[in-house]
Every structure is written in C-alpha cells, then in structure tokens.
Simulated scan of single mutants.
Amino acid sequence: MTQQAKSARPSRKAEQRAETMEQIFDVAEELFSKHGLHGVTLKDVATKVGVHHTLLNYYFTDKKALFDAVFSRRAGITSERRMKALADYEAAAGDTPTIEGALHAFLDTDLDTYIDGGEGWKNYAKLGAQVANTPEWGAELMDQHFDPVVLRLISLLKKAMPDCPEERIFWGYHFVTGALMLTLARTGRIDKLSGGLCRSDDFPAVKEIMATFMAAGFRSLCD
C-alpha cells in the first residue's frame, strides 16, 4: 500500500463517521421533535438510521446526552445569525433604533432560517418550542444557548424606548418569545380555528406581520 493510500484511509474513515453522526442527529431531531425526549429511545434512533444501538451507546451516555447534542448542533447557528443581524441593525440605526427595527432583526432572521432551511430546520424549530416549555431542564438549555442574543435584543429595545419601565420591556419580550415558540411548534390549531384561512406552517405570513404586531404591544405597555 502506498503512503498516499495509507494517509487517505483515516481521512475516509473520519468522513464516514461524520456522515453517520449527521444521520444520527437528523433522525434523532425528527423523532424528538415529534415524540419528545421521553417518547424516543436510543434504539428507536439506531433502528431508523440502520445501525446497531450499541453504536449510539458508545457515543452517548444516555438519550438526554443525544438530545442535548442534537439541540446544540443548530442552536449556535441561529444564535450567531440573530446576533449578527442585531449588531448590523444597531450599527445602521445608530442612536435612533426603533422597536420594529429591533424586532425585525431578531424575528425575521430566525424565521428566514426556518423558511430557507428545509424540513430539518423546521424539525429543530419544533424541538426548540418543546425545550422552551420544559421547565425541569429546558430552561437551562435555553439559558445556555440563547441568553446573549436575547439580552442584545433587550438592550436595543431599551434604547428604542428609553422612558419605558425596564420590567415592562422584559414582560414584552416574554410575550414575544411565547408567540414565537407557539408558532415554531406548528401545532395546526390555527389551521382548524381559521378553517384553513391561516396555516401554522406558513412562516412567510408570520414574518410579514409578527414584528408589527409585537411592536404595537410594546408601545401599549410603555404608553
């Protein structure tokens, strides 16, 4: 065997391992988004991927470790995108940011990720909604991955509303994130209530109106 072939072997092995891990993450993400942490086993994931469950036991101590790894995989990407959007908006707005501008930077960037990212990103959106509404351990994951970007948004909102009581800005964000998480969950409830007039998976329609709706709410709170 030539030296070139020898050096290529570990590289190909590493590539295969990376491909298998991506498959595992994609499948686990889909299953967790549908059934939650407690409705999925490592064996379920292994069976759907087509590998022996001992492979997952080798890489993950338990299914919560797999869940955390799945959640972390995309959390950094969406946080970085929103942080950049907020920084770019703040630089453009200077000393006169608006409520709408800050909310568009925060919300639209996130919604664009799910609109353009395909079903994998939409599964992650549903997973995020689950995590945000699981106080036992979900709050810790949200704190770990999203506090910096949320606090950046709030600092911009404070600049846009300098006379607004600080606690009302935090309450306003609380209501914003609640509406966003319900939207990302895609429960289908609005589809039934509206008789098909609205669709829970119509993220472009949500993007068009959510920031405007939330901005009006902030103004009402602060006026």
Results as ranks from 00 to 15, higher is better:
residue 147 D to T: 15
residue 213 F to Y: 15
residue 164 C to G: 03
residue 52 H to M: 03
residue 102 A to G: 05
residue 111 L to D: 01
residue 22 E to H: 15
residue 175 F to L: 15
residue 8 A to V: 15
residue 209 I to W: 05
residue 116 D to K: 09
residue 50 G to C: 05
residue 212 T to I: 08
residue 181 M to G: 06
residue 192 K to R: 14
residue 126 K to M: 11
residue 185 A to V: 07
residue 209 I to C: 14
residue 172 G to P: 02
residue 4 Q to P: 00
residue 41 T to N: 12
residue 88 D to M: 06
residue 23 Q to Y: 08
residue 81 R to G: 06
residue 171 W to K: 13
residue 139 A to V: 13
residue 177 T to N: 04
residue 149 V to C: 08
residue 51 V to R: 02
residue 53 H to L: 04
residue 63 K to D: 06
residue 39 G to L: 09
residue 126 K to P: 00
residue 126 K to Q: 10
residue 64 K to R: 15
residue 72 S to E: 12
residue 59 Y to V: 02
residue 147 D to C: 01
residue 60 F to H: 10
residue 120 G to F: 03
residue 172 G to F: 02
residue 52 H to K: 12
residue 25 F to Q: 14
residue 112 D to V: 04
residue 169 I to R: 00
residue 167 E to Q: 12
residue 104 H to Q: 11
residue 111 L to H: 04
residue 89 Y to N: 08
residue 75 A to W: 03
residue 183 T to D: 02
residue 123 N to A: 11
residue 193 L to A: 15
residue 191 D to M: 07
residue 189 R to T: 15
residue 206 V to M: 02
residue 16 Q to M: 13
residue 124 Y to R: 03
residue 126 K to T: 03
residue 216 A to R: 13
residue 37 L to I: 12
residue 54 T to F: 11
residue 92 A to W: 05
residue 205 A to H: 08
residue 182 L to T: 14
residue 111 L to P: 00
residue 43 K to L: 05
residue 201 D to K: 02
residue 26 D to G: 14
residue 74 R to D: 14
residue 5 A to F: 11
residue 62 D to S: 07
residue 66 L to D: 01
residue 181 M to W: 15
